[in-house]
Design a protein around this nucleic acid. Sequence first.
DNA 1: CTGTTAGCGCTTTCAG
DNA 2: CTGAAAGCGCTAACAG
Lengths: 349, 349
Amino acid sequence: MTIAEKTGNHREPRRVTAAMVAAHAGVSTATVSLVANGKSSGRVSAKNEQRVREAIRELGYVVDSIGSSLAKGVSSLVVLVAPDISNPFFAKVIAGVRSVLASDYQLMLSVTDAGVSPSASETRKILGLRPAGLLVHAPSQEFLEEIGGNLPMVVLDAPGISAKFPAVNMDVAQGARDVVAHFAAQGHTRAAYLDAITGTETLAVRREAFLQAAGDFGIEVLPSSVASSMIDVTAASAAFSEHWPSWKKAGVTALGCATDNHAFGVLHAARTLQIRIPQQLAVAGFDDLPYSATSNPAITSVQLNAQEGGRLAALKLRSLLEGKSPEPLQSMLPSSLVVRGSTVIDGDH
Amino acid sequence: MTIAEKTGNHREPRRVTAAMVAAHAGVSTATVSLVANGKSSGRVSAKNEQRVREAIRELGYVVDSIGSSLAKGVSSLVVLVAPDISNPFFAKVIAGVRSVLASDYQLMLSVTDAGVSPSASETRKILGLRPAGLLVHAPSQEFLEEIGGNLPMVVLDAPGISAKFPAVNMDVAQGARDVVAHFAAQGHTRAAYLDAITGTETLAVRREAFLQAAGDFGIEVLPSSVASSMIDVTAASAAFSEHWPSWKKAGVTALGCATDNHAFGVLHAARTLQIRIPQQLAVAGFDDLPYSATSNPAITSVQLNAQEGGRLAALKLRSLLEGKSPEPLQSMLPSSLVVRGSTVIDGDH
DNA sequence: CTGTTAGCGCTTTCAG
DNA sequence: CTGAAAGCGCTAACAG
């Protein structure tokens, strides 16, 4: 039977229930439940277990997660809440998470519009699924409040969060300082910063650390030299184009970007505006996307270990779900600055 | 109360049930259900409806999706199955989908390892959630078989699928022909193709159309000039590095890539190998990622309208969910070749 | 070891 | 118009 033939007729295929399996195997549904959930050891006779397994296979029975969730009060769903899947950086986080969780839990991604944490009503819908746990990437403060502490949850990339909360962070502050130090070493004395519009903590930390370090290194960043745009190449490009004239006038020769996506937008605008990079303007970003190494020029960027972050966060959640307390409760992953052609003429290509 | 204070105590917050609302409003749960689901018109008195609404607000009641799903036999979940979220292209598809579905359905993304459709067991888990419908991006044939036709479903980017099936496709074949025509116009006579390793139809179509068009345009593509790698900048880079010596020997001067990600890998390797692009090798890809315009050189690519594709697919699914038949059943979105510096010296930058 | 039973929270007939 | 009641499929006590 081809797919085409099956089309259109969405008739409910008679769902195989535990009761059917029980009848088939000549046992009770309780026994079926035990076997199907791997809780049979020492509670079901070998003979019955065997029978049930056969019946399950023959009938193609799969535990209905809805019924199961309702009975248990919780599903086996782990929801990964991410405000910015468009960021390729994020795919690595997922890979890390999957490597730990895939076998025992069902991972689902809750998607929102670019750069935004779920709204209150979206959050409630997520909670309505009764997930076993939540993995939250770069959440806004409001979102965390919304969730409250009544669900096993691990946050990733939320530097502002209390130390009592299971979390995995990237040392973006150090990254920002590295960027500024690098700018200073290159002799820059006036810089600008292109921020992202979003309530995300990690981005606030990047900006604040950048500004602070600038002060420490004697690099001037005028208030008017801090702009922001959505995390989007096009939006960043537009924002930069708008601000460049005044920045140029103010003597800005170096630009820190909240993300590599922003840096890409700047590169793009720079071509149109005939700005030579890095000679006229040095540009650095965060995230070190796979594309950042091959752009023109290649982008100097703060590299973050996304996959390891995802893996660690998933491990912590796993502990939580098993009733243990994650050890250590919080982890901080180092970041490192990768210097390329967008900040130095002879940079790594 | 701060988040920190709430930490650790995952005590079950007493869930507000319909029964509690009913008691509060002095009606039955049936009435609450009616009102909560907006089915009250003409079935509940204005007075009672008012009371129930108040009670709902006061208690902060939210319909429990698990209980609801069990009773109805289906959830309000729409699962978007995507084999390659690492592709920024995909974020646009999601944006399109959300614009149509967000308000009435709950959208969740099922993630897999890069480039692979869900395994049979993963598929069953997805089905176990009893989603209202499925949106499937670039599925493998096996996955479609697995699902069967017993669930409202719309596929995106699956050119091989039967015409009877609701689908939205991108005209990648035309795109491939455009690439070849472009190569021919530039005087190339020997080309290679860097394919993706995955069971995805759209990629097979890209390759076949490329090879076919090459024949038509008198461009030779030796069997040994077709290589493949995972959809990943690093993997593509390695694959290209490995094959380049023999391709070079064979006189290859143009390279078609299955995706822009592959093209990025090639660009990357080309730097190391000191291959001048496009003088020595012209490189073109598919997807026209946001990054493709700013790479070095900028990548000539087949542009696909991802967001519109997502929107159309969601509209079709919506029809299906409302019991209607999508009109038209299938849509084909045009593609267009964007010529840039990776294929012509004076290309668009 | 095994089956019976009572829900989980909600929707939906079906009498009143 | 309204409420009582019967499930949806499963799990967890609890008796045997």
